[in-house]
Structures are given as C-alpha cells and as structure tokens.
C-alpha cells in the first residue's frame, strides 16, 4: 500500500507554472529522495503536501487520507521538517517539543515520555534543557526531526533538511533518517539537490521545472553510471 500518493498535481504562481502534472507514490516504510535542482518545485510541492497551499488540480493522500477531504487526519499522520528552521530560538529544546506535542493532542506524562524517547533517538536527550539559540545547526536539525517524531507519524516529510550544515553533520542527519526508516518502517520523503544524500536502494523521484522526469529506485535510474552523472544528464537534457 502506498503511504504517500501524489497525483496529477498542478500549481502556478500567477502566470509562472511551479508544478505541472506531478504524480508519484511511495510504498510504506520506504525512503524516497525527491531530487531536483533549485527552482524545480520542491518547496511548492512541500507546501501543498503540508496543506499550507491548496492545489486547484490534482490529489494528495497521506496514509490513505485525502488532503482535500480529510486534512486533519492527513496532517495527524504526517511529520514535517521544513527547510528553514521553525523552532522558537528563545525556548528550550524541551519547551519547543512540548508545544508541538500539545498541538498534536499529547500532554502530561505521555508527552514527556515521547519527548525523552524522540530526543534519545536523535542523541539529543542531554540537551533538552538548553535554549535552541545555543545549539549549532546540526543539533537544531536533530531537534526538529525529534519533534516531528513525537506523534509517531506514518509519513515524514523533510524539505532539504541538510541545507547550511557542514559535511559531518549532513552525513549524520542523512544516516539518522535512513536508520529511522529501516527501524520504524516510517515512510520518508526527503527533498534534496545533492545526489550524495541518496542511497542506491532508495526510491527516487527526479523533479525538474515542475515535472517528474523519473520515478523509480535510485539504482535503476542511475543504471551503470554514477547517480550524479545520470541526474545531470537528465536535468541537462531538458534544461
């Protein structure tokens, strides 16, 4: 069963077409990379997936819930990490997580347990009482990922979560989320413009100029070339 299904999605800003008939689906428990150069339409797609924008045409289903007709059920099954940080810098890690937990109906002991569990998973437990402002970029990202896990979502959406991080932090975050996917059977959609964040066993959707150029496993799309070469060739051909 597909955990995330996008069908024939269209979106435009005035006369500028941002998404032109985008469609793909991800099976339960799979890590899917959404690869595309800057301006491909990745962030617009994320805004539509999270309900911040509504598409005039096309459909989105999260864990079987249609975004248009059952937005609350769809959002309740979704964890999101946005490209720009969405943490309150002057609040502590734990306060940020408690706020989010409550927005998803979790409070008291249950919320506290989930917060400890999620922070522990991301190796952030000892920083729970630190103010976010004091954390480095990598730790802020981990906090956001931990936060997105609190309500145990079926689908996790991450919009270029490694932007602005140094190489070791980038690798650590990428590995963390791959491990999460393997351990918990959570479905992941990971937007990026960097091919080295994609493993050959991952699902891969290549988005360019608002269109899906390819949707398959990364090793099938790459063929016998390195993924980077295949990606550049595809993007270059239509560029």
């Amino acid at each position: 069963m597909s955990a995330l299904r996008v069908s024939d999605l269209h979106y435009r800003y005035g006369s500028k077409v941002a998404l032109d008939g985008v469609g793909f689906s991800i099976d339960e428990g799979r890590f899917c990379a959404l690869l595309g150069p800057n301006g491909a339409g990745k962030s617009t797609l994320f805004s539509l997936l999270t309900g911040l924008l509504a598409a005039p045409e096309g459909g989105i289903a999260i864990a079987g819930h249609d975004m248009r007709t059952q937005p609350k059920a769809a959002l309740a099954r979704m964890g999101v990490v946005f490209q720009q940080t969405t943490l309150d810098l002057d609040l502590t890690v734990a306060q940020n997580l408690r706020y989010f937990a409550a927005l998803h109906g979790l409070s008291g002991r249950k919320a506290a347990n989930r917060i400890d569990e999620a922070l522990d998973r991301l190796d952030m437990l000892e920083r729970a009482s630190e103010k976010v402002r004091a954390l480095n970029g990598g730790h802020r990202r981990r906090t956001e990922i931990a936060r997105a896990l609190l309500h145990r979502p079926a689908v996790m959406l991450l919009d270029e979560p490694t932007v602005g991080l140094d190489a070791p932090a980038r690798a650590a975050i990428t590995n963390h989320v791959h491990d999460l996917c393997d351990d918990t059977h959570m479905t992941v959609l990971w937007a990026t413009h960097l091919t080295d964040e994609v493993r050959l066993t991952d699902e891969l959707v290549i988005l360019h100029k608002g269109k899906v150029l390819a949707s398959d496993t990364a090793h099938r799309i790459a063929g016998d070339r390195p993924l980077q070469a295949a990606f550049l060739e595809m993007v270059g051909e239509t560029g």
Partner: peptide, 14 residues
C-alpha cells in the same frame, strides 16, 4: 518568515 507559523498551521486542527 521564521517558519513557526508553519508549525502552527500544520497542526491537525481546523
């Protein structure tokens, strides 16, 4: 602009 409004608006509530 900072994005925390996004967190609020993606909560599963009307």
């Amino acid at each position: 602009e900072m994005g925390s409004m996004k967190v609020l608006l993606t909560a599963p509530l009307p």
